[in-house]
């Protein structure tokens, strides 16, 4: 029993130190966002790689999540004679919560691990030291462009996932549940309110920050060569995914309070 308590204590301590490390690292990165030099080419490359390269993920996630959700809801809603409201529930669920969260988790899996692996490998092969020896600040050169790229691209990717999910919902509604198209799209439009869009579109900016900061932090803090890089990659996905879920809950609570819902 004592050993279990000790292990839990150690784990908690590690989590607190980790949170402390990530926060301090985030502070360093934010402090350098507006300070020259600006690496525009790196920003453009990261937008292309992290953002455009994640489009296919959002398309697959959106189409299957939308269809699965429509199938799940259709049976229950039909029992209450409410299947005509499919458009509402699909839009509401996707725009407010599922779209941002699914996009965040998918991008975290692809990008956070990639960032940690790339920066970790650079560290293991002395490329980070080489950058410093050439008078380049590695945080400015590597972390800031990735942060900005994800900050800018996450909302766009979320809009894409939301849109595709709503289309996925329509496919099921039209071909399987046989809901009128006009009714479906009217319901979709009715739920695309400023409030719902605000709740859904504020989160991706923060999810982008979380994915970039965790990925970069894990890469920069990796130790022990290739084994360390593997560990950093794994931890980047776990930490960023959990952080996204925690942030989702806290932000929903906060935004609901602001909107008086």
């Amino acid at each position: 029993m004592a050993s279990v308590a000790l292990a839990v204590n150690e784990r908690l301590k590690k989590m607190v130190f980790e949170a402390q490390g990530i926060t301090a690292f985030a502070g360093k990165v934010f402090a350098k966002v507006f300070a020259p030099p600006f690496y525009w080419r790196d920003l453009y490359e990261q937008i292309h790689f992290l953002g455009i390269g994640s489009v296919y993920l959002c398309v697959f996630t959106g189409i299957f999540a939308g269809q699965a959700m429509a199938l799940q809801f259709s049976k229950e809603m039909a029992e209450f004679g409410a299947k005509d409201y499919m458009g509402r529930i699909i839009t509401l669920a996707n725009v407010r919560a599922l779209g941002p969260v699914l996009t965040g988790l998918m991008v975290a899996a692809r990008v956070s691990s990639g960032i940690a692996a790339e920066i970790g490998s650079m560290k293991a092969s002395n490329q980070i030291d080489a950058l410093i020896s050439f008078g380049t600040d590695p945080i400015k050169k590597l972390a800031v462009p990735r942060l900005l790229a994800l900050f800018l691209m996450m909302p766009i990717l979320t809009i894409l996932t939301d849109t595709i999910a709503i289309i996925g919902g329509w496919i099921v509604s039209h071909f399987i549940v046989h809901v009128s198209d006009a009714l479906y799209w009217t319901n979709v439009k009715q739920k695309l309110t400023y409030g719902n869009l605000l709740v859904g579109m504020t989160k991706p900016f923060f999810f982008g920050i979380i994915i970039a900061i965790v990925g970069c932090y894990k890469g920069f803090s990796s130790e022990g060569g290739t084994r360390g890089v593997g560990q950093a990659t794994r931890e980047a996905v776990v930490v960023s995914s959990i952080s996204i879920l925690v942030a989702e809950f806290m932000m929903t609570k906060g935004l609901f309070a602001i909107l008086g819902w």
Binding site: S121, M122, S125, N126, Q127, D129, A130, L131, I132, S133, F134, G135
Partner: peptide, 19 residues
């Protein structure tokens, strides 16, 4: 240090070329 490094060349193990 940045200024001092202007005149120091370092050849790292394996070269450390940017991938």
């Amino acid at each position: 240090w940045d200024r001092a490094r202007y005149h120091i060349g370092m050849i790292f193990q394996e070269g450390a070329l940017f991938d």
